[in-house]
């Protein structure tokens, strides 16, 4: 299962990276989102899968799933949301201001 998940993560990262490298702003945002999902899955996989019951002590189970990656991912999900929101807004604001969503036309070294 871990191996399968890691391969899934690899595929998602590849797709996400491809999208990030494309020219269109919206595709870049989509790519960032996909990479975010991939990383969350990777973190949760690294804690070992299906090793015990949910990390709730009320369950009175013999073993619990690793709670630390879960806590990390929980914060990551929420931050991901905030990052997506900011990137999305940045994206459409720059589209409105510059009238293009082509990254090659948004190059900025003339002003540096």
């Amino acid at each position: 299962m871990e191996t399968l998940m890691v391969i899934l993560v690899g595929i998602l990262v590849s797709i996400g990276t491809y999208l990030i490298l494309s020219k269109q702003l919206l595709r870049i945002v989509l790519g960032v989102s996909i990479v975010g999902h991939a990383v969350n899955l990777l973190i949760i996989t690294s804690g070992g899968l299906k090793t015990g019951s949910a990390p709730l002590l009320g369950e009175k189970a013999a073993g619990f799933a690793d709670a630390l990656p879960q806590a990390l991912v929980l914060t990551a999900i929420v931050i991901n949301f905030a990052v997506t929101a900011v990137v999305l807004v940045l994206c459409y604001r720059s589209y409105q201001s510059f009238g293009t969503d082509d990254m090659e036309q948004l190059r900025g070294n003339e002003h540096e």
Partner: peptide, 19 residues
């Protein structure tokens, strides 16, 4: 394509080795 496959491969190999 090359870069994204390289990225995916790196992450996969790294995660598998870490496991």
């Amino acid at each position: 394509l090359i870069i994204s496959i390289a990225m995916g491969l790196t992450v996969t190999v790294l995660a598998l080795s870490a496991n």
